[in-house]
Amino acid sequence: MITLQRRQLVGHDILLARHGNHICSMRVDRGNGRVVALLDDGTVDSAPNLISPGLRLPDTFRSVIREDWKFFAALSAIGTGVGGLIMAVAWNFSSTVMSPETIQLMSTYASY
């Protein structure tokens, strides 16, 4: 079940426990799964962002979109295509059912 909650960064806690107030800034290196900290003496330290590499973290909204963007793009394209097809069929059907005077009246007045 997708919970869509924010992931807790374990690396932040590890670095805070190691260095405390000596940390100037921290950043997340998502490619390597680590948190990198710049210390006040100019050195750099890093910590892993996962407790266990096989641990399955809860999905977030961004992770779902990042993994399934092709599916959502295809779904949007299909919806647009079906909507366009329905409008074309409705336009064609309306021209066969209504008289040309009624169609002209509906297209000239803004209230319709």
Rank of each mutant, 00 (worst) to 15 (best):
L4H: 13
Q104M: 04
P58C: 02
N92L: 12
N92V: 01
L50V: 01
H22Q: 13
G83E: 04
N92S: 12
I103P: 02
R6C: 04
Q5A: 07
D41E: 05
I14R: 13
L39S: 09
C24I: 13
A110L: 11
R34P: 00
T108M: 11
M87S: 08
F71G: 06
D45P: 02
M87H: 06
F71H: 11
H19I: 00
V64Y: 07
S94N: 10
G20P: 11
S76W: 09
L39R: 10
P100E: 10
M87N: 08
Y109R: 13
L9V: 04
R18N: 05
D41G: 03
P53D: 00
M1W: 10
D68K: 13
W69H: 14
A17N: 13
T96K: 01
L75K: 13
I23D: 08
P48F: 12
T102H: 08
F61C: 02
D59P: 07
D13H: 04
L55I: 01
Q5T: 15
L75I: 05
S95Y: 04
R7A: 03
I65L: 12
I2K: 13
S46A: 12
P100A: 15
L16F: 03
C24F: 05
A110M: 05
R18V: 00
D45A: 14
Q8K: 10
T60V: 10
V10W: 10
L105D: 00
A88K: 04
S46N: 06
I51D: 08
Q8T: 06
W91M: 07
Q5V: 15
W91E: 05
V36A: 02
L50G: 00
D40I: 01
I23V: 15
L85Q: 03
S52D: 14
T3R: 15
D59S: 08
G54Q: 06
S107C: 06
C24Y: 03
R7G: 03
L85S: 04
G42R: 04
